[in-house]
Design a binder for these strands. Structure first.
Length: 684
RNA sequence: GCCCGGGUAGCUCAGUCGGCAGAGCAGCUCACUCGUAAUGAGCAGGUCAGGGGUUCGAGUCCCCUCUCGGGCUCCA
């Protein structure tokens, strides 16, 4: 029996009577919790084996919660390192943190060796042996000197210890997690020969691990610095149960099925002809039709929102980009110049200098402001070859770009209205879950910090008015402007950065823009850069992945397929298609050269929202058979006029909530007024 | 740009030890004229990414280049 017992307060408000000095393991036993992996005490996580503090509430961290998964993943990463060091004697190991959905570990293999895909199964087999041996994780704390001695043969570990020992500012968060704090280093041992620098906590034993999978190998620079060693990274995933692991692997398969590059090929939307060069897409008729619908929607609503259309060329004298600062700051991201008649030209990486010239083409009055210039402008950026990715990262793309020139006093209202407009537009595409980042002045920036602060305040005000959840991304603004970056989540929870709103402090000055004020004096306008889709190309890719290719009817390149049962019904099918076309529906007749079943299958695979089957009964009765995408079962004998009504309604672009000057309580207004996302199921 | 792995018919892929370049789908032709996710038969389709090398002989082995994919770095 323990000499005395204490009442231990739990975070949920209850308490448990335990012997003094009891550990997290004993607490878990007392509570009947069998999946605890750590203890949360005073905001930090500690090992289960540590005696619980008698003051302050504590809480068990269970395997399935976010922090618990991180512990599992971190522990699994240790086992990965242990396995690799077993299999490659002389290997160096660097860092191995938990990450979203998994973990990785970086190594330098002896003799400059590299991992191969087939190594993953060997390593995984060795990891499973270690798990089978139920090795305890044991924590120890050492002095800096002891740590350096322990890791004498491990240059990366020594560098971490030395870097942190050198004092604050010499470390970063990822390295801190590796277990060096102040003048102590913590290490974890498991098994006879393995010890790693680590802050912890870890599971009590490797036996608690097992639902993991190694996924891929990759190169990764030491400390993320491309001038330093490139290490060999192994990525894996780990979960609290086989079921959770299987669910994650299924999510990966789901993402694979939604890959816009695959869908683009299967639906014949676009391609990347090698003859054009990397990162330069061509849109096929169906893909171009989708773009047309997106762009028309954008143009129409911009006009309604008080924008004016402009059009500008793809190239300009290099001197323009000297003036704008692009060649000074971002020449590396621009295509090299070309010489024409002794003058250097560049492809434009952004539209703003051109729009500035439109503004400056004549004297401007305060009466004209805010002046909102909109263009679907195609820009060219020299992206490094390794970063290109489908339509989401290309070398030539079209921005739905606008520049708003306004008087200083108009900035706040303009930004707030703009943010509402952005949310309404994106909402119309069926995307509703947004998060924002306010990116503030970076280290490398131009302009007066006072102006920066004012611009940042205006952006923050717009966010507050809109009620959008946001976080501050300190120091992540563009060199010339603070900005709001808008992110959205797609149907399977992935986050995509889309819109950007920037308050430019530089261009009006560089181009010496002005307007005549009410006071007959010259004033400098503010300039807002903004793109809603960001890139039309990239936004199309996001839509394709979000909808798995089954776009809402109004965006579908073909909205209805009319299938005659036999050749005798083809004339009627043509009439049906003409009726639909008269209602503005994009309809196609697919003649009876193949079996009806095969044509239905083709239409389904092409994700056509409405399939109309017409046979003898329909010819006689003026009806159609309706097979709607996502519908429960096909209908027979629907009157043509009724079917046309339903399809025409489905094919109509959604309404857009006008920008709201005064959003309602809790700032949900921009979303509540937006029509519910069209599931693209054609249910009419 | 860097690391790793790929590139064989429009697509997905097979091709053993270096010994005649294949399949399914798609395409075309013919027959079938069909009531809600694949009718049948036939035909055609290849500079095996490109170039160089080794070899009696290269899709296969070696080198270079291009390109795609996964990462890293970058992303005004």
């Amino acid at each position: 029996m323990h000499p005395h017992e204490v009442d231990l307060a739990l975070t949920d408000g209850s308490s448990v009577r335990l012997p003094a000095g009891a550990t997290g393991e004993e607490l878990a036993a007392a509570l009947g919790v069998d999946d605890a992996v750590a203890v949360r005490s005073g905001g930090t996580l500690v090992d289960l084996q540590v005696p619980l503090p008698e003051t302050g509430p504590v809480e068990l961290v269970r395997a399935g919660e976010p922090d618990g998964r991180s512990v599992l993943r971190h522990s699994t990463a240790h086992v990965l390192a242990q396995a690799v060091l077993d299999l490659w004697p002389g290997a160096s190991f660097a860092i191995g943190p938990p990450i979203e959905d998994g973990f990785y570990y970086d190594f330098l293999l002896p003799g400059g060796a590299h991992f191969r895909e087939e190594d993953l199964s060997r390593i995984e087999a060795r990891m499973r042996e270690i798990v089978g041996e139920a090795q305890p994780f044991e924590r120890a704390e050492l002095s800096i000197e002891e740590g350096l001695e322990l890791f004498e043969a491990q240059p990366f570990k020594r560098e971490i210890i030395e870097g942190v020992a050198a004092g604050p500012g010499a470390s970063d968060a990822a390295l801190e997690a590796e277990g060096v704090e102040g003048q102590r280093v913590s290490v974890y041992r498991n098994g006879p020969g393995f010890v790693d620098l680590c802050r912890g906590p870890h599971v009590p034993s490797t036996a608690r691990l097992g639902s993991f999978r190694l996924l891929r190998t990759a190169g990764a620079y030491w400390r993320g610095d491309e001038r330093r060693d490139q290490l060999q990274r192994i990525y894996g995933t780990a979960w609290e149960s086989e079921e959770a692991l299987a669910a994650h692997l299924e999510r990966l398969a789901e993402a694979e099925r939604r890959d816009h590059r695959r869908i683009g090929r299967e639906l014949d939307l676009f391609s990347f002809p090698p003859e054009l060069g990397p990162g330069l897409p061509v849109y096929h008729p169906k893909g171009a039709r989708i773009r047309y619908e997106m762009e028309e929607f954008a143009r129409r609503h911009h006009l309604e929102a008080g924008y004016e259309l402009v059009a500008t060329p793809h190239a300009a004298r290099s001197s323009l980009f000297e003036t704008s600062g692009h060649l000074g700051w971002y020449a590396e991201s621009m295509f090299p110049g070309m010489e024409v008649e002794g003058v250097s030209y560049h492809l434009k990486p952004m539209n703003c200098p051109m729009h500035v010239l439109v503004y400056r083409s004549r004297a401007r009055s305060y009466r004209e402001l805010p002046l909102r210039l909109f263009e679907l402008g195609t820009v060219y950026r020299f992206e490094r070859s390794g970063v290109l990715h489908g339509l989401t990262r290309v070398r030539g793309f079209t921005q739905d770009d606008a520049h708003i020139f306004c008087a200083p006093g108009q900035l706040g209202a303009e930004l707030a209205a703009l943010l509402g407009f952005v949310l309404a537009m994106l909402g119309a595409f069926g995307l509703g879950e947004f998060e924002a980042e306010l990116a503030t002045r970076p280290e490398k920036s131009v302009g007066d910090p006072v102006d920066w602060a004012a611009a940042e305040a205006a952006l923050r005000h717009a966010l507050d008015v809109t009620g959008l959840p946001y976080r501050i991304a300190a120091g992540e603004g563009a060199f010339y402007a603070p900005k709001i970056d808008l992110h959205l989540r797609d149907a399977i929870g992935r986050r995509w950065q889309v819109s950007t709103l920037q308050v430019d402090l530089q261009l009006p000055q560089l181009f010496d823009l002005d307007f005549t004020g009410e006071d007959n004096g010259r004033h400098r306008p503010y300039m807002i850069h903004r793109a809603l889709f960001g890139s039309v190309d990239r936004f199309l890719a996001i839509l394709l992945e979000h909808y798995e290719g089954a776009l809402p009817c109004w965006l579908s390149p073909v909205q209805a397929a009319v299938l005659p049962v036999g050749a005798a019904h083809e004339a009627y099918a043509t009439d049906v298609a003409a009726t639909l076309a008269a209602r503005g529906v994009r309809a196609e007749v697919r003649a009876a050269s193949e079996s009806l079943g095969a044509r239905i299958r083709d239409a389904k695979l092409a994700k056509i929202p409405w399939i109309l089957v017409v046979g003898a009964e329909d010819v006689a009765g003026g009806s159609v058979g309706v097979n709607a995408r996502g519908g429960a079962r096909p209908e027979r004998g629907v009157a043509l006029s009724e079917a046309a009504d339903r399809i025409a309604a489905d094919a109509t672009p959604p309404p857009l909530l006008p920008p709201q000057p005064a959003p309602g309580p809790a700032g949900r207004a921009p979303r509540t007024g937006v029509p519910a996302p069209r599931a693209g199921d054609g249910a009419g």
